[in-house]
Design a protein around this nucleic acid. Structure first.
Length: 177
DNA sequence: TAAGTGCGTCGTT
DNA sequence: AACGACGCACTTA
């Protein structure tokens, strides 16, 4: 109990709801401002859901519908049309600027870490961009998997490279390696 | 040409 | 003060 409350406070999660997909059960986290986190399927985390998923405001339920739909589309490699409001207040200024760029990368398109750094305004901040990508709290919907290393190399992925490869493949993106 | 090494540079811890 | 989801120049074989 105490552990859960601590997690809620530090992470600013008010509600956590599951999303069943063909790839497993994702967990979506919401604050009063919107979607603030999305976790890849993880057996260990499943048990906690039941404890969180009580007294869900109708607004959050509506957001969750949108998240669910968006995730279905994203996992199918289709264009994501509508997203719920995102609460990215947990990020730093720099991270939010990076995440904004990521949201602008269309389905089936990619940018390199260097190109993202360009967009953010400092060509030399390449490694910092990599770190910011890794800190993305809403993977898949904020498509950090569309950021590759130079020369179409895979680069890294905090959720595991298998996920990155899978997501890219479904959008028809070719990797070099 | 492919694979490996070194180092600059920036935000975060 | 140290560490990356990088990138580039520069070795080697």
């Amino acid at each position: 109990m105490k552990d859960m409350n601590a997690a809620v406070q530090t992470k600013n999660w008010n509600w956590t709801l599951p999303i069943q997909t063909r790839d497993g059960e994702f967990l979506a986290h919401y604050s009063s401002k919107g979607l603030c986190g999305l976790d890849f399927p993880d057996e260990e985390a499943r048990d906690k859901v039941r404890a969180y998923a009580v007294n869900i405001p109708s607004e959050v339920q509506r957001w969750h519908q949108q998240t669910t739909k968006a995730l279905e589309n994203a996992l199918a490699g289709r264009l994501v049309t509508e997203l719920p409001p995102l609460d990215l207040s947990g990020g730093t200024d720099f991270q939010r600027r990076v995440w904004r760029v990521l949201k602008g990368i269309g389905c089936g398109r990619t940018l390199s870490y260097g190109e993202v750094a360009d967009e953010v305004g400092d060509r030399k901040a390449v490694r910092a961009v990599g770190r910011a990508c890794g800190a993305n709290p809403i993977p898949v919907l904020i498509p950090c998997h569309r950021v590759l290393a130079s020369k179409q190399k895979i680069g890294g992925f905090s959720g595991g490279l298998d996920w990155k490869r899978k997501l890219l493949a479904r959008e028809g993106i070719l990797l070099l390696e």
